[in-house]
């Protein structure tokens, strides 16, 4: 009896501990949202989205910043997903387990821990100078792709590992090649979980500032990028610049910019979640 009551108390305590952990995250988010919305919500207007940067806080807009963010985001998706998923498939399905694969694995895990500014320095040397891509959207997207690739590789491998071995073996036993097995069985089954990793990775990329400033992403750009080789700026850089200005009006602009950035992340994540749900419903074994 005594032992049972004790277990129940511990059970309850653990539950409340869990609730506490969850609510700390939520309270922080709520505090940020309330703070930012009360400062910046009134500033949101059509003009704010269509105006160029300006020295007058009330005239300044984020046209070049949000279009730049979408450019970077789109290109990063195109570059990082095939590279990351491809690398993960190779590591998970083709390499033999052994010394070499261990070394590769440890290195990829280490890559995920490198400060983002280091990627900026790497990108400045390789993409901007050696390959002469300049301070362009493409350089920025390549750097962010490198930055998030380790996260995609690690999470994709987990997703691939979670596909039941029996499915693979059944496919191979029916005479399918390894490629056919991967393409028709493993990838569709792992897709929803792969997507989870990609969402987390891209959400990180969209908020990055340091590596982009390093390669020379600009702050005042009076035109929208028309090709991947144009100069650009992104929302986090614009926000960063506004926050450090002395005039109070710019702080309000920064808050409004943060709302837009949160909105973009929210919408993109929403789309990904819907796609993931659909893919999950399709899996029938």
């Amino acid at each position: 009896m005594n032992r049972i009551t004790r277990s129940k108390i511990i059970d309850q305590l653990f539950k409340y501990f869990g609730i506490l952990c969850t609510s700390i995250g939520l309270i922080m988010l709520a505090a940020l949202l309330i703070n930012v919305f009360s400062d910046g919500f009134g500033r949101l207007s059509i003009d704010f989205f269509t105006a160029l940067p300006s020295r007058f806080p009330e005239k300044a807009g984020i046209l070049t910043a949000w279009t730049g963010t979408l450019w970077i985001f789109g290109l990063t998706i195109l570059i990082a997903i095939p590279l990351g998923v491809g690398a993960a498939i190779y590591l998970e399905e083709y390499t033999r387990k052994g010394f070499l694969s261990n070394v590769l694995e440890i290195n990829i895990a280490n890559l995920a821990g490198i400060p983002s500014i280091i990627y900026g320095i790497l990108g400045l040397t390789i993409f901007v100078r050696t390959l002469r891509l300049g301070e362009s959207v493409l350089s920025g997207a390549l750097i962010l792709s490198l930055l998030i690739m380790p996260i995609i590789v690690v999470s994709t491998r987990e997703a691939l590992r979670a596909v039941p071995k029996t499915i693979k073996e059944a496919s191979l036993a029916l005479g399918a090649s390894q490629w056919q097995t991967i393409w028709h069985q493993v990838l569709p089954a792992a897709f929803p979980n792969i997507l989870t990793g990609i969402i987390l990775a891209l959400s990180r990329a969209i908020g990055e500032t340091a590596p982009l400033i390093m390669i020379g992403a600009l702050t005042y750009v009076p035109f929208v990028a028309k090709s991947p080789l144009d100069e650009f700026t992104v929302l986090p850089i614009q926000i960063f610049n506004w926050i450090s200005r002395p005039q109070a009006g710019f702080a309000i602009n920064a808050a409004a910019g943060i709302i837009v950035l949160l909105g973009i992340v929210f919408v993109l994540n929403g789309i990904a979640v819907v796609i993931r749900q659909r893919a999950r419903n399709k899996i029938k074994w």
Partner: peptide, 23 residues
């Protein structure tokens, strides 16, 4: 930066064909 940004902003109003970028 704020000075150059202000000049670039005014310059754009007169010369929209010249792209002035400031980092």
């Amino acid at each position: 930066f704020p000075v150059t940004e202000a000049v670039a902003e005014e310059f754009y109003a007169v010369n929209p064909d010249i792209k002035v970028t400031v980092g």
